[in-house]
Write a protein that binds this DNA or RNA. Structure first.
Lengths: 344, 344
DNA sequence: CATACGTTCCAAAGCGCTTTGGCTGTGCGC
DNA sequence: GCGCACAGCCAAAGCGCTTTGGAACGTATG
């Protein structure tokens, strides 16, 4: 295990010079730098990161605190986001510190990470209603980027989010334009801010069209396939069935599609299906319905990249509080169609 | 930001004593320990982890290097494993360092982590055929546990795996006993060791029954829902259709079930469906087929816990090279049934 | 009463790096 | 020829913790 001391001794140089040569400081001649680089490579020298972190006070590490869901479930969307963020960290010499915690451990996890000088910044996942984390992190002086937004404020901190209200409004309008009058919504849990925004967009569009959202046609569930299935069965088992259903996730839409088929109904004919599609890698895109699905698409992985990029810029001072709306794409597939004639 | 120096000054004690008091060493009286603990809590003192790591030479961090799939896909199964491992780390004061890398960056990632003294051990994910990682890690002297096994050796290193060959043999026998003769297999990519073991179990059982595995009934795909769909369509579109299909993952089975239904066939009647079920949290368990699915179940999250536990034990010296087979459960659901009479 | 020993504490030496504050030698303007 | 700026290097002081090797002070032992 070669260290700086040994390396510099071997080169007949001081540790200072070697350190500077390796870290690209200008106070060293090009000739010696070359020599140092070569020797470092030959010895496979890697600086001890812990020593470096201690000396610089920077840890070059970003924390991700991932809370398990209410039912101890890890969010299915999380891995794609992580893949995007991780790539950016790698490119920039940062590490990712992941803590999977239960909801009650979460606050402490942030404190420990911040105070112990283990991380330079943090990504806040899954903001909930009344989320205390942004305020707490601001107080701790720890740079952070929220993936999503708070419910009551959208400035004073950095976030990367989809304009959920807008896109769900647009999606709802699309269905209304097809003549649908009774729309079902299978949303995420309303403790999550994104779910509230989506519902608001949904309701707003209905309101504009002079329709009221029927509470009996709205569901809030954790986003799993079985939950999508059950919610859809229950929606389609009611007295006034919806002719179209919006889902908050393609995982849910998968269950919804299964339920519709199980009931002997044709997707896009008897019941239209539209989903928010996070472009999850293991689902492919647009396949939730068995045919190309009508969807609002926005890459979660892309969001991970953008959020990570932004956080690093904030840490090195080249960006300040910034709010980013991710691009979305509205894709009309075969899972939506005109409302059945007798239902108009 | 209170540090040890400040804390000890305030207490009128030496740093030595305070450090020992906090870390539970016996050379300090119970009275002073109490006093120290109290003051530490009052100041919200948290030791600087980087300093501690440097001084001890231990990083109390476990690395997870997660390679993206061949098609740049993050493995859908990864998050559940991580959730299990992460919980164990938290309980034991360890951190998880996650690196998401492309296949060609992988070797370097391990080297950097090991040499830079950033981690005390590592979990090796998704062992492939001819995997060089275990040998490399052994040479680096870095403790590790493989989730899965190598293809050619199963000792000399620690692993946590499912007895894939055995369980697929058993599952195949179950289908054979139901009178099925033409069995389809939708497996993972054969670059992955687990896929090979599963195929071997499958073929072994067929061989024992005097049947040969028909290569035209076997597929190797990355485990996504659309891939499961396509593979199933292609299996059932052939001249000699299988009457039963085994899937390597419930994500794939989801697609398979969709394909079967799309073809107007009844699951468990026209085509039996059996899957390996990792108990992924976002799929629920046993729901891949819309009815309770016949499955080999083994909790991936549980595997994460066991692997993490084992690795920590190896690091602190309380365990040495150990091989663990995870428990599995064979659940007969409604997606399998007797082979159609005219096919026997 | 002196010796030995155990308990409880402390001063100081690292851990391996970065960074401050010099020091030396060369080239330049005057 | 003198002073000055500047490039190129170095010694040493941290960063905040752990840990070694005592020291001081009882208390039991002969």
């Amino acid at each position: 295990m070669a260290n700086l001391k040994e390396l510099s001794a071997r080169l007949g140089l001081s540790q200072t010079t070697v350190s500077r040569a390796l870290n690209g400081y200008p106070e060293v001649s090009e000739a010696t730098r070359k020599r140092v680089m070569k020797a470092a490579a030959a010895l496979a020298y890697q600086p001890n990161q812990n020593a470096r972190k201690l000396a610089t006070g920077k840890s070059r590490t970003i924390g991700h605190v991932v809370p398990l869901g209410e039912h101890d479930m890890i969010n299915p969307h999380f891995s794609d986001f992580i893949a995007g963020a991780g790539a950016v960290y790698n490119q920039n010499g940062y590490d990712m510190l992941l803590k999977v915690v239960t909801v009650d451990e979460e606050a402490r996890a942030y404190r420990d990470l911040a105070i112990g000088n283990r991380i330079d910044g943090v990504i806040v996942h899954g903001p909930i209603v009344g989320d205390a984390r942004p305020a707490a992190l601001t107080e701790l002086g720890l740079p952070f980027v929220v993936h999503g937004r708070l419910i009551d404020t959208s400035d004073g901190y950095s976030w990367v989010d989809v304009d959920n209200k807008y896109v769900f409004k647009a999606a709802t309008e699309h269905l209304l334009a097809l003549g649908h009058k009774r729309l079902g919504l299978i949303n995420g849990l309303e403790s999550m801010v994104f779910a509230i925004h989506r519902r608001e967009g949904f309701q707003y569009a209905l309101g504009e069209a002079g329709l009221a959202a029927d509470p009996s046609l709205m569901r809030s569930v954790e986003m799993t396939e079985p939950n999508g299935y059950e919610a859809t069965r229950s929606l389609l088992g009611g007295a006034l069935k919806p002719t179209a259903i919006l889902c908050s996730s393609s995982v849910v839409a998968l269950g919804a599609a299964r339920a519709i088929r199980d009931l002997g109904l044709a997707i896009g004919v008897d019941v239209s299906l539209l989903t928010f599609d996070d472009c999850l890698s293991f689902l492919g895109s647009g396949n939730a319905g068995g045919v190309e699905t009508t969807a609002i698409r926005s890459s979660l992985r892309g969001a991970g990249e953008v959020a990570a990029r932004l956080l690093l810029d904030i840490i090195d001072g080249s960006a300040s509080k910034t709010q980013v709306f991710m691009d979305t794409e509205f894709v009309v597939g075969k899972t939506t169609g005109p409302a059945p004639a007798d239902e108009r």
